[in-house]
């Protein structure tokens, strides 16, 4: 997403606790357009630090009328960050009813609430304990992975990103093992995982892993890398002379 694209994405944050304010700050950092709802005028006052960049609605966000006022019908994203799980489920449900296209994110402190929130249409729920716990353990055990992920996830203009390369239907490469495909040798792209058609994952697949139609190869790299792999996958199978031919294609 480019910066200009971000500013057209309208985000609504419901509930301005500590977490809510962090979300607002983070969203503004990435230049999204933000509006907030809270029933506590004092909390809304804290929004002044963001210098008028935030549209403010005072009211109870569990009421449909407040959601209408705040512009939920034409919003793109809604963050439900209320202190208790029940309110979050209720808010997600009413927001989903007002705007079926909405992407809803919510926090849930209980795993059972997570399931319910997903059922009423939240795209993703974050368990504060997990978010914190994984962050700490990562920082303790693998601090450089944290740096890497921050670069991948938060950097605005990075060349490399997450690639999800689906093996097209009818691809001549389907059914071949990864070592036979020689993706790494030819294109340099390292396949870190494969998502099977039944959505199960295989991490760090070994060389004799056989790919199928509809499987997705997962890697980190640039758009060009992705294109190169797709091109390789679509090449005709000539078992004996395949490699000579392929290499010629890429040498050009």
């Amino acid at each position: 997403m480019t910066a200009s694209g971000n500013s057209q994405t309208k985000c609504i944050v419901c509930g301005l606790g500590e977490t809510g304010i962090c979300v607002v700050r983070e969203l503004l950092d990435h230049e999204f357009s933000v509006s907030v709802i809270d029933r506590d005028p004092e909390a809304l006052e804290r929004m002044q630090e963001f210098k008028q960049n935030v549209a403010v609605t005072e009211g109870n966000c569990l009421l449909d009328s407040t959601l209408q006022d705040a512009g939920v019908p034409d919003a793109d994203v809604l963050y439900s960050i209320l202190p208790d799980d029940r309110s979050n489920v209720f808010l997600s449900l009413s927001a989903r009813r007002i705007n079926p296209q909405l992407r809803i994110y919510s926090i849930a402190s209980d795993p059972s609430a997570e399931k319910k929130l997903e059922l009423v249409g939240a795209r993703k729920t974050v368990n504060p304990n997990n978010a914190e716990g994984f962050r700490i353990s990562n920082e303790m055990l693998r601090p450089n992975v944290v740096v890497f992920l921050d670069q991948i996830v938060y950097a605005r203009h990075n060349a490399a990103r997450y690639l999800n390369i689906r093996i097209p239907e009818g691809s001549p490469s389907a059914g071949l093992s990864l070592s036979r495909l020689e993706i790494q040798k030819i294109t340099g792209v390292v396949i870190i995982a494969v998502r099977r058609i039944d959505r199960s994952m295989v991490y760090s697949p070994s060389g004799d892993f056989r790919t199928n139609e509809g499987d997705s190869l997962i890697a980190f790299g640039t758009k060009e890398d992705s294109d190169a792999v797709l091109k390789l996958l679509s090449l005709e199978q000539d078992r004996k002379h395949r490699w000579k031919g392929v290499r010629n294609v890429f040498r050009k």
Partner: peptide, 19 residues
């Protein structure tokens, strides 16, 4: 700060959903 970790996590999905 826990709230920052949660906030970042919530917004990260909007930025880079696939990852």
């Amino acid at each position: 700060t826990p709230s920052v970790a949660v906030g970042k996590n919530l917004v990260a999905d909007l930025l880079n959903q696939d990852t």
